[in-house]
Design a protein around this nucleic acid. Sequence first.
DNA 1: CGGTTTTGACCTGCGC
DNA 2: GCGCAGGTCAAAACCG
Length: 179
Amino acid sequence: MENHATLFLGSCMTPFPFTLSPNMENSHLMNILSDKDEPNGVLLGSNQEICFPIAQVKEVSQNKKFIQIDQNEVKKSGKKNGQNRKPRFAFQTRSRVDILDDGYRWRKYGQKVVKNNKFPRSYYRCTYEECNVKKQVQRQSKDEGVVVTTYEGLHTHPVQKLSDNFEEILNQMQTYLPN
DNA sequence: CGGTTTTGACCTGCGC
DNA sequence: GCGCAGGTCAAAACCG
C-alpha cells in the first residue's frame, strides 16, 4: 500500500459530475481529467492532480502518472459546430473492481470489446429521470490494476444514495501492488 | 414483479 | 462503397 500515494481531492472536484464521497477519497485516485476550456490543462490543487481536456484516452503512463490525450480526438469531439458537446471527465483508479461507488445509481446499457484491449468497455447511464449523464468504465489491458472511468454530462440532481459502508468500499478499493 | 444485466443486432462515423 | 470500430438499442434472462 505504501507504494502509492493517495491523492485526496477536495473542493477542486466541484465541477465534476460525481460526488467524491469520503469513501472514494480513500481510493487510490490518481488522475482527474476534464473537458474544461483550458487548452493545456490546469493544476487542480497543491498535489499533482492534472486536469486535461479529454476526448479519447489514448494511453496511460504508469511512471508519469497521467493519461495522455490525443489532441486530434479532442478536435473531433468538438464537431457539430462546437455545439452539443457534453463535458467529459475521465479519471483512473487502481482498483480490483470496475464499478466505483460515486453515489449515483447507474444502469448498464451496453458492453463492447474495444480494439487493443482485452477487457470490455461497459456503458452506463444515470437512472435518474431526465438525467442524461453517461459513463464508460474500462480496465486497461496494459495494467490490469487500472480502471479508467469516463463521465459524460452533468448530473441535474443530487446524489441518489450515500456510500455508508466504509469497510465494503475499502475492500473494493484493493490496493494495487506493483512488482 | 419491477429493476438491472446480458448480449447480439443495429446504427453511425471515419478511413481507405 | 466497403469495412472497421465505437456507441446504442432492445429483448431475454436474471435477481432481490
